[in-house]
Nucleic acid binder design. Structure first.
Lengths: 363, 363
DNA sequence: TTGTAAGCGTTATCAA
DNA sequence: TTGATAACGCTTACAA
């Protein structure tokens, strides 16, 4: 492997001149620049990144700490992160499966000297102290955090607003007996979505009732099982707001088995807008979460605080979560005036041909 | 930020001793080890990764170059890569959107000094030369490549076998008039799948006919549109093998609109087993591709060739692509004897509760 | 415009 | 068992 010394020798200049020539410094004559360039090409010189960042204290790399999520949401977040980073010619050092404070902290530690900043996704409340420590070493941006940290920017999902408008949609359609399939206790997103549901009800002068609040765990299985509970209660509600699409999918399957028709017998709204949502029968009305944008914004915030010296920035952006109206609530016309949008793309245009889709067999 | 010098000063030893103590060298007395540890803790010392890898020439990091894919497949590959890497305490430096040889080469170049090895996904045939260059700098593993490179391990998908068994399944069900919805010309996966389809036919003494080979581009839209073409031909085939699930999804939608019933009027098999496959009506029989495993194997191959010194390894693993029988071909009983498996998991168990699924709202 | 030399923060090789 | 000190490969004052 050729080093800068080899290039210097070949071009008959000092290593300093090679460095300057290759990095486009102004203080180099055109002639030597040529000579150095030629020598570097001839030797096929690849500068050593570690040496460079040791010297410059910059790595042009962003660290990313993720929980052990998978599926489309996660993939889209990464894509957003990576694209935004690439746009600014940053690379991304990714490490996932970080559940608790300790693993987050040790991963951050092991990235010291190799990243310029760090994006931490969905840290649990316990990690607040760890993050305080990390942000002394490099700028940190939190992705959908369960808490606020001063001196730290963050991007999160409009859980409350999304749930509020989903429930509002049902109310606008005339429903008054609206159940919710809530997420697990202790989960911050779940809590916010539940709060949005309740507030929307109260705003319509419907008192939330614990008899209509079913507790799931965000899995499809729990959505499926909850149907038994609901049915056992005797009187069916006229609508259900599921705190995520996975549970809605389970719910829909179980309803189909019991021949309970959607939306005639029961209207259903979900949250997340996962890919499957529009393939359910009927296509699921749900709250759209733009995972790609979530990642992209986090990177933009991080790079901006990288560039700004001075006190650490701490902007907290909230990503809008708009309602996407499909067919699972019926009477779609009524929804017109609301902030929702009707998803009426014809089937054949459902998937926009993606730049690379023709390049690989994968969907 | 405390450096090794600060720790040395605090512990009243030399920096060499600090390094030895912290890296668990045997040649350190228990007493000084304690003292150094205490000093490091007190100063909250984080070793600098760049300095360390400059000195050791090891980075404990794997580079990953990806095309601009997205969606579940891509996400699963990354998850497989990352998990396998983490298992061996490696981190992953990811860079996507690499379409052509030049971007692949320059990305690899910019990783020099910061990675120990590189996984390159789906490089196009043109990059063969670039990869020859890259593998002189660090070990390379190819993920589903369009070609073989000596001195380079690779993992690829059993495209031929998968297509062969999908078509074989249709033949076993008694179909003789089997069309295929092929992928784009020039795409290696598409070509292999087409070859598998043809071979299966020939093996059953059915001569492949170009009139039954329709050309799509792996998008849902193209699957949708092809139905018109097929119908225009007059006589409907009795079965279709779609070279990927996206096209199968489009196909199914278009057939539903024309009231052509699956599998009664037309049997359909796909390829990839994307998440949506089992939600189609009827659930799609398709060839399963384990994207997670694809990534994990690539990393294992890479790490193994990292550890082995000597000539570069060049194992080429092929990931099996088993047929998953659902309902889109009917008469499922006949398939018993074949190498396929019947997917009969009940709806409520479709999604295995995932370790973290209870920790985030995302599917 | 170019060269010399001092870092950057580690690890590794010697002696002691 | 420890300590000097020389790498590692690069950038960047400071001199020339």
């Amino acid at each position: 492997m050729a080093t800068i010394r080899d290039v210097a020798r070949a071009a008959e200049v000092s290593i300093a001149t090679v460095s300057r020539a290759l990095n486009g410094s102004a203080r180099v004559s055109e002639a030597t620049r040529q000579r150095v360039g030629a020598a570097a090409d001839a030797l096929d010189y690849w500068p050593n990144g570690a040496a460079r960042s040791l010297s410059t204290r910059r790595t042009h790399t962003l660290g990313v700490l993720l929980p052990d999520l998978h599926g489309e949401f996660f993939s889209e977040v990464i894509r957003g992160l990576d694209h935004a980073a690439r746009e600014q010619s940053f690379q991304t050092l990714i490490s996932s499966s970080h559940a608790d404070t300790d693993t987050v902290l040790s991963a951050a530690r092991s990235m010291q000297g190799r990243i310029d900043g760090l994006v931490i996704m969905s840290p649990d409340a316990g990690s607040a102290h760890g993050i305080d420590r990390i942000k002394q070493t490099f700028p940190v941006v939190l992705l959908n955090p369960r808490f606020d940290v001063t001196g730290c920017s963050a991007v999160s999902i409009a859980n409350f607003d999304g749930a509020y408008s989903a429930t509002g949609h049902l109310l606008a359609l005339g429903h008054r007996h609206i159940a919710t399939l809530a997420g697990p206790a202790g989960n911050a997103d779940a809590a916010e979505r539940l709060r949005g549901y309740r507030d929307a009800l109260r705003n319509a002068e419907v008192e939330p009732s614990s008899a209509l609040e079913f507790r799931g765990d965000f899995t499809e299985a729990s959505g499926y099982e909850i149907v038994e509970e609901i049915v056992r209660q005797g009187s069916l509600p006229s609508a259900v707001f599921a705190a995520n699409d996975s549970m809605a999918v389970g719910l829909v399957s179980a309803l189909a088995l019991r021949r309970i028709q959607i939306p005639r017998d029961l209207a259903v709204v979900g949250f997340d807008d996962i890919a499957i949502a529009r393939y359910l029968s009927p296509p699921l009305t749900t709250v759209h979460v733009d995972a790609y944008e979530l990642g992209a914004r986090a990177v933009r915030l991080l790079i901006s605080s990288l560039r700004s010296d001075g006190p650490p920035e701490s902007k907290h952006e909230v990503l809008p979560a708009p309602l996407v109206v499909r067919d699972s609530c019926g009477s779609r016309l009524i929804a017109r005036g609301s902030a929702s949008r009707r998803d009426s793309r014809p089937v054949r245009k459902r998937t926009r041909p993606h730049p690379n889709q023709a390049g690989g067999p994968q969907p």
